[in-house]
Amino acid sequence: MIRHIVLWILVIGLVISFLPQSLEACPACKDLNEPIARGFNWSVLFMMSMPFTVFGIIGGSVFYLYRRTNRNLKT
């Protein structure tokens, strides 16, 4: 079952990587090279990265503290 899921993810990933296309998702922009379009682009990329950063740091801290406490309890 897991092998099938991994295989499908790989196949879909390969198909997507061979078909790169820019999508114009900014309804207020005339073309993608406009300053406002670049602003929106960078802003969206920045904000998209933040949940991963926040959960990564909090999750990483909790994981590290649990590991450290367990190590201290064993010694």
Binding site: R38, G39, V44, M47, M50, T53
Partner: peptide, 26 residues
């Protein structure tokens, strides 16, 4: 830590808005 996570999201939104204004103006 959870409070700081939500604060980070708040400031991310504000920084995101700043990036739009900053890069949208030549």
């Amino acid at each position: 830590l959870i409070l700081l996570g939500s604060e980070t999201m708040l400031f991310s939104g504000l920084i995101g808005a700043f990036l739009v204004f900053r890069m949208g103006n030549v």
